[in-house]
Nucleic acid binder design. Structure first.
Lengths: 168, 168
DNA sequence: GCAAACCAGTTGCACAATGAAAGCGGTTGA
DNA sequence: TCAACCGCTTTCATTGTGCAACTGGTTTGC
């Protein structure tokens, strides 16, 4: 029960939870890629997370209240992970991280289109996306606008354009 | 020269640079506490960083272009560290991290007052702060408004109020 | 009905990162 | 001259990371 923190600074406390190389990658995949199962997160990750690291991080995110775990009714040994409101509140942070990375780091076109849209859309778009995430992960009423669909469509459009330019 | 990245995703690339427990703490102290020397960062850190970790992180941040190092003309073996424009661009990210931490984590009053002001001030305040940081760290002309002073004054006001309530 | 594929993880092991403490040679101010 | 200070480095014990193989159970396809 007793947890000791390095300090009560909000930046520090946030880093104590999210300050590693994998936690935000997992939340990103759940949020933008709608990966909800262990195997999806394991095998469809661009970055290639190891299964023991994934298991460890899921456990930590559960403890910290960023995700929840439920049994999948369609499959006895499948588990479904969902984002909590706390994690959904990270959308603006992802938007800024993406904007900063896009400006300063060697990003690839297809993986940064979503960051571009998120940056251009601003707080209004973030709010719409968060409302949709609350519908997907928390069972809230589904809003009319699907930012998730817009982001996915833009991503697939870039992929299609790239394939047309240089076919496999 | 050759560096291989896990992926070209802007979130991932940002995490590869800043995704650890200390890098952002150091930038925070330089940015909000104006710590410019090794000893200042080592001894005045709330969280108590070890000297070897600090030396390692400063080297990495130098390599990645987030800070610069210069000799202090007043003292032959003093070094002055400065933020680059790239690091100053993290101000909105700190604002969101602070806001998120304040909302969801057990922050202390005196260390979160700055996050509160930064959240309330919004993008206009962030821009003013960034202009001032460019003056402090990059030699740009000093703007009329000192957000840095406002933040420090608010912090000290909270400290004074706490001491009045419960004197040492 | 049975084998193959799939499920969420766990285990064992090598290596890298972290962190506390002491120490380094040189510089400065009294 | 001497103590305090300067930016680190070294040593060593502990912890975290990452790969690969594996577990017991479930579902799918034939």
């Amino acid at each position: 029960m007793k947890e000791d923190h390095r300090s009560g600074c909000p930046i520090n406390l946030t880093l104590e939870i999210l300050g590693d190389r994998w936690s935000l990658i997992i939340i990103r995949d759940m949020m933008f890629g709608n990966r909800r199962h262990f195997r999806e997160l394991l095998t469809q990750s661009e970055e290639g997370i190891a299964s023991n690291i994934l298991a460890d991080r899921l456990k930590r995110l559960l403890e910290k209240g960023l995700i929840t775990r439920a049994d999948d009714p369609s499959h006895k040994q499948k588990a479904v992970y969902s984002l909590t409101d706390m994690a959904i509140g990270l959308v603006p942070l992802f938007a800024h991280m993406g904007a900063w990375g896009r400006r300063h780091l060697p990003v690839s076109e297809e993986l940064s289109i979503r960051a571009e849209l998120l940056e251009e859309g601003g707080p209004a778009l973030w709010e719409a996306f968060m409302a949709e995430l609350r519908a997907i992960h928390l069972g809230a009423p589904r809003p009319a606008r699907s930012v998730f669909g817009e982001l996915r469509a833009a991503y697939e459009a870039v992929l299609a354009r790239q394939q047309a330019r240089q076919p496999a």
